[in-house]
Amino acid sequence: MSSIRAQLLKTANAYLDAHTNRDAKALGAIYSSSSTHETYPKPVQPIFPHVSNEDYLAGVADLFKMWHSFECHQFSEPIVDEEARKVVLFVEGRGVADVGTYVNEYVVVLKMNKEGTLVENRLQFFDSQGLLAWVAKMGQQVTDLQNKVTGKAAEA
């Protein structure tokens, strides 16, 4: 295995571990300060809008607090493009919160810096049906989190 491939996979695994451990600080350590965060498909964008790295990390820290437990399992081998410095992850997320159990599938594309140590762009695709059903259960907690991340709380 080439050294850059190993580093790309190490950073991608750190991403998964940070989610499983609900560790916003560890997650922040693998993002460049100018990292961008995009979420698809369009029906989930009102819940998880495209945001700056600072807003993303603030939002994810609050989101992690909602979970009693959360795990990420890859259901397929990652795709690694060494030249483009990208790793595509195929993930099942499973968590427990006050409103019950959450299960969803994601495709996450992590575009990294030249060294493969920092994520410069996170592009995430949710199974929108599972996510929207979960958001309906979460109710006001999700609305409050969304408002905080998008700055609407300050405007209200």
Rank of each mutant, 00 (worst) to 15 (best):
E82R: 01
E92S: 11
D98Q: 14
V99E: 10
F70Y: 14
E115F: 00
R5E: 15
V109K: 07
G93A: 13
P46K: 03
P46N: 01
Q141H: 13
E71H: 12
N113M: 01
C72Q: 12
H68D: 15
L9I: 09
E120I: 02
T101E: 12
A154V: 09
F90N: 01
Y31C: 10
V107Y: 00
P43A: 03
T11R: 00
A18L: 06
K42M: 10
E82Q: 02
A153W: 11
A14E: 09
S2H: 11
E105M: 09
K25G: 05
F90W: 04
V109L: 13
L57K: 03
M1Q: 12
D81L: 02
D23M: 07
S52P: 07
G100N: 01
R94N: 11
V60P: 04
A133Y: 05
R94L: 09
N121C: 14
N104V: 04
K42H: 09
S3G: 03
M1N: 10
Y40A: 14
V51K: 07
Q7I: 08
L131F: 07
D98V: 08
Q129L: 14
N113Q: 03
G95W: 06
L145M: 14
G139D: 12
V108E: 14
Q7R: 08
H73K: 14
Q74I: 00
E115C: 03
V135N: 10
T36E: 09
D144W: 07
E120Q: 08
S69V: 01
P41T: 06
A97R: 14
F125P: 02
A29I: 00
K114Q: 15
T117M: 05
L132H: 06
K111Q: 11
V96E: 11
A153E: 12
P43L: 03
K148N: 09
S69P: 01
C72H: 13
D127A: 05
Q74A: 10
I30H: 04
G93K: 01
Y31I: 04
E155L: 15
E92C: 11
F70G: 00
H68K: 15
G93I: 00
L118S: 07
K25M: 07
L110V: 01
Q7E: 15
E115T: 09
K42Q: 10
Y31S: 02
L110K: 03
D98L: 12
H37G: 02
S3L: 13
R5N: 12
W134K: 08
A61C: 08
Y56F: 15
D62Q: 14
Y40H: 10
V108P: 00
E83R: 10
E54D: 15
P49I: 06
M138C: 08
V149R: 05
V51A: 12
A24L: 04
E92F: 05
P43E: 00
E38T: 09
G130M: 06
H19I: 08
